[in-house]
Amino acid sequence: MRDFDDLRRAVAREDAIARVVIASTRGSTPRAAGAAMLVWPDGQSGSIGGGRLEHAAAGAARALLAEGAHARVLRQALGPALGQCCGGAVVLVIERFDEHRVEEAAEALKHSGAWARRIEPGAGDTPPTTRHGAGAGITWLDGWLIERLPPRHPVMIHGAGHVGRALADMLAPLPDLAVTLADSRPEMLRNLHASIIPADDPLHALGHAPDTATHIIVTHDHALDLELCHRLLHRSFAGAGLIGSATKWARFRQRLAALGHSDAQISRISCPIGDPNLGKHPQAIALGVAAALLKEPGIRAADRRRTA
């Protein structure tokens, strides 16, 4: 259930909303199983993709809210009848959520890591046994919907200046990432996206990061950048990038070598970061860093497992 935090916030704001989730797919479809959107009478957020499919699903979701119904299943072919040419098919589950329903989901996810519920009236009384492992984010079987909270890849952004903030804002909506933004200046951590975790000390945040984290070093202080790189090379991490020019990196390589790090160790940090073809505007740099990050094999593999 990759959108649970968004779901909780939407219910707190709107009292009751309808959630539309792609429960299963067949053939070519705009989005994978697990993609979801939230719908209320005068608005919506998220996306299941597909234009006409999403428009029809939003209408069905608002109808469900107006009727006071609990859940509905839509089986939709993505062909000429819908004005789409994907050629595949999807099963959509639409559910009404209020505060009680959100807490029910939270309890199930907390205690077992999965939330199984009967959607179709003719389904059996107990959840079916499946062959899907914990890595499968969603399972639709015999009228039951089973969703899990998949692990998110930790991304530690050290520095909340123009580039760091732009990158954090860009990555924050992605449900497969857990973004931490660290900066010692309190004013730089105000008005963050709800899913960004603030940290008031980049060095402390680095020290407590999991070994699977990716670190992006974009602080306002070259001495702090160097210390972060130095400490990072003493521990495990999934990936690391440092903002700066080729000249800055040449100086850093010399200083890191003087601190006892080998060339092989130092090469674990990428510098410069971003895509020079996109320009030097903070958002352009952030865009290049985000694109490179999302291409990392570990993140792509995790995303495939979660939507399997």
Rank of each mutant, 00 (worst) to 15 (best):
D201C: 14
D142C: 01
T129C: 11
V218C: 11
P186K: 06
H234R: 15
V218M: 12
C229A: 15
W140E: 07
L174H: 13
M188C: 13
R235I: 09
A134Q: 13
V218F: 09
D225R: 02
R152I: 05
W144E: 10
T126R: 14
L192I: 04
P128K: 05
D201P: 11
G164P: 05
R148V: 06
P173T: 03
L192E: 06
D169F: 03
H204D: 15
S184K: 09
T139D: 13
H193L: 02
P151S: 07
L145V: 01
R185T: 05
M188P: 00
P186V: 11
A134M: 12
E147A: 10
A213K: 00
R131H: 13
H222N: 11
I138N: 06
H234N: 14
F237G: 02
I196H: 09
D200C: 13
L232P: 02
D225K: 01
L228H: 00
A238W: 12
L167E: 06
V218H: 00
R165T: 12
R190K: 14
V155R: 00
L232W: 04
H153A: 14
S184L: 11
A182F: 08
G207C: 13
T180Y: 05
P127V: 11
L171R: 03
M170L: 15
L167D: 09
I197T: 15
I197V: 15
A182V: 07
R231L: 13
H220N: 10
F237I: 08
I138E: 10
H193T: 07
T130N: 08
I197Q: 14
D211G: 15
P128L: 09
L177A: 07
V163N: 02
H222S: 10
L203I: 15
A238C: 12
L228N: 00
L177Q: 08
P128N: 00
A205V: 08
V163F: 02
L224V: 09
F237V: 03
A136H: 14
I196C: 01
M188W: 12
D176G: 05
P150V: 01
M188K: 14
V155H: 01
A134Y: 11
R165Q: 10
P186Y: 07
L181W: 06
H215M: 11
